[in-house]
């Protein structure tokens, strides 16, 4: 497999006020060339630190990293013009205009001034080019950051939590942008803890927790694994859930409760309706619980005490099929 990014046993420890915090511990991962690759993990799992190490902003304690086959950070200058990155929120000079910020960055890489106009136009910022960055909305800042990455015409784009703070329209724009760039043959590495979002755009994913890799591969394979990890489930809505749960349990089904619904483990949904109807209980709603990235993620991280309470709540809601 051709890879755009590869890390082997990457490790980083931060020293702060006398205490040590291991941010990344022995992370080995590979991002295939072309398409969108999701880089998933809960907050504090080491995603941003890994990205910073790939970009030479943070020095790894040990391990190796490669971008397009070049060891970084040592050979980073040889590939940096093929890499565009937005690490965390966009950060430009607030007192300068959008155009001034881009002119400086273009000058730093020897890009012609004409390219600044091109990327402003490409990101629909042409009319706001003379406005100060400080007055931009978060969505416009994100556009400008993308414009900056496009100054290089990069083959690899790294987006770190690109939808943080964006409104729904902005989130959709970013999502579609990543899809579009991936469709152009570029490699897009997007880190996020919002799994549903990545699931919609990513072709492949790496899931990390506590700074090390938990799973990696095509999204479909990860979901397949999650589905296979536990029995198929259906979510059942019924007028008397307590009675229904007793009936189904008596008939040998595995039943759990979820907000007034029952989550029933079965490969044969018809058997559930038959069982309930046989006792005068009629199903009002029956939905197959599909394994999703969130479920897979929670399954992978469950044993490690990872994920927020909200993540766990979400896992219960969807049945946490792989758990």
């Amino acid at each position: 497999m051709d890879v755009a990014v590869r890390t082997v046993n990457l490790r980083k420890t931060y020293l702060s006020r006398g205490s040590r915090r291991v941010a990344v511990t022995g992370l080995s991962m590979a991002v295939p060339l072309g398409g969108v690759h999701g880089f998933l993990g809960p907050n504090g799992s080491g995603k941003t630190t890994t990205i910073r190490m790939l970009l030479g902003l943070v020095r790894a304690d040990s391990g190796t990293a490669e971008v397009f086959g070049e060891a970084v950070p040592k050979r980073l200058p040889h590939v940096i013009d093929r890499v565009g990155a937005i690490v965390e929120s966009p950060k430009f000079f607030p007192a300068f205009t959008a155009r001034q910020n881009l002119v400086l960055l273009a000058g730093a890489i020897g890009s012609p001034r004409q390219r600044v106009d091109e990327v402003l136009e490409a990101t629909h910022l042409r009319d706001r080019g003379r406005d100060r960055y400080a007055g931009f909305s978060l969505g416009m800042k994100q556009r400008l950051a993308i414009a900056a990455t496009l100054l290089k015409d990069p083959d690899l784009l790294i987006f770190d939590e690109p939808t943080n703070g964006l409104d729904p329209a902005g989130i959709r724009e970013v999502r579609d942008t990543m899809k579009s760039l991936g469709a152009q043959g570029k490699t897009v590495l997007v880190s996020s803890h919002i799994l549903a979002e990545v699931e919609q755009v990513a072709d492949t994913v790496s899931i990390i927790g506590h700074g090390s890799l938990l799973a990696e591969g095509r999204v479909s394979d990860i979901l397949g694994g999650a589905g296979a990890a536990g029995a198929a489930q259906v979510r059942v809505g019924v007028a008397s859930p307590d009675r229904a749960a007793e009936v189904l349990a008596a008939d040998g089904f595995t039943v759990t409760r979820d907000d007034g619904y029952l989550v029933v483990g079965t490969d044969d949904p018809a058997a559930v309706t038959r069982s309930l109807a046989g006792h005068g209980l009629y199903v009002a709603e029956l939905v197959p619980v599909r394994p999703d990235l969130e479920s897979a993620f929670l399954a992978l991280t469950a044993d490690e005490g990872l994920g927020s309470d909200a993540d766990r709540a979400a896992g219960r809601r969807t049945g946490a099929g792989a758990a």
């Binding site: 730093a108 556009r143 152009q184």
Partner: peptide, 18 residues
């Protein structure tokens, strides 16, 4: 999308460095 379908430079060359 935040970018035009094809956002590649029309100058058809990569930046040459400074």
């Amino acid at each position: 999308t935040l970018v035009s379908p094809d956002s590649r430079p029309r100058t058809d060359r990569r930046p040459q460095g400074t």
